[in-house]
């Protein structure tokens, strides 16, 4: 069994004893997932990088408080979510202060809030596609991200955790601290909203399946 294949529980146990390389392995395993979650939460690339970084720092510092080593991923997402909420509160406060002190015509978006283009730059591109297909693929990706961004925050976070990161309903419920039934109902509502926005792309998929 190579180090890449070691289960989370073993890597966490090693990291708890101060093994940095085990923690590094966990970082490479989860940094994209955490970053994706945080980006969708904050809608800002720069802020998302800072929060992702802080999430792993916090995780290393408080690793001893993790009781079940198997629950590392859920625990990591809980830390990320708390830090996102802190960042949002801070941003809301700063916005309120700047609105109060800076005239509206001088205000600029410094953190790239709502940027979809830079976000797409970070999405893994399918190298096997020809240029035309790549354009279509990017257009579809942009539409999906815009549709996710339009969802309300509670719906957005369940969609990101369940569909983009592939977490089970139980795991999502644990991370968000809500009942399983609530996760299911939010997923159903989110799916309805996405179906309305992305009807065209869903039809394409259906056609692809039926062919």
């Amino acid at each position: 069994m190579t180090r890449d294949e070691l289960p989370d529980s073993l890597l966490v146990a090693k990291a708890k004893k101060g093994d940095w390389s085990a923690f590094e392995q966990l970082f490479w395993r989860y940094h994209e997932k955490v970053y994706t979650f945080v980006w969708h939460f904050l809608q800002s690339r720069e802020l998302a990088e800072d929060v992702t970084q802080d999430t792993f720092i916090k995780a290393w510092e408080s690793l001893h408080s993790l009781k079940s080593n198997d629950a590392f991923q859920a625990w990591l997402h809980q830390i990320a979510r708390r830090l996102c909420l802190d960042a949002l509160r801070k941003r809301a406060w700063e916005t309120a202060v700047s609105e109060f002190t800076v005239p509206a015509d001088q205000q600029t978006s410094e953190d790239g809030e709502g940027e979809i283009e830079p976000f797409l730059a970070g999405v893994e591109s399918a190298s096997s596609l020809d240029p035309e297909e790549t354009v279509i693929d990017n257009e579809r990706k942009r539409a999906v991200h815009e549709a996710i961004a339009q969802l309300s925050p509670p719906l957005r976070e369940v969609v990101v955790l369940h569909y983009l990161e592939g977490l089970s309903v139980d795991e999502v419920a644990k991370i968000l601290g809500i009942p399983v039934g609530t996760v299911l109902s939010r997923l159903a509502r989110a799916r309805e909203a996405l179906r309305r926005t992305l009807a065209r792309y869903l039809d394409e998929i259906e056609e692809g399946v039926s062919k």
């Binding site: 994706t36 970070g122 893994e124 990706k141 983009l164 799916r191 996405l194 259906e206």
Partner: peptide, 21 residues
């Protein structure tokens, strides 16, 4: 269908993960 469409967009990479580490 929803899963296929959403999963298709993939995860996002930070600009420089090595620097972050």
């Amino acid at each position: 269908q929803t899963e296929k469409l959403l999963r298709g967009v993939g995860l996002v990479r930070p600009s420089d993960p090595k620097l972050m580490l």
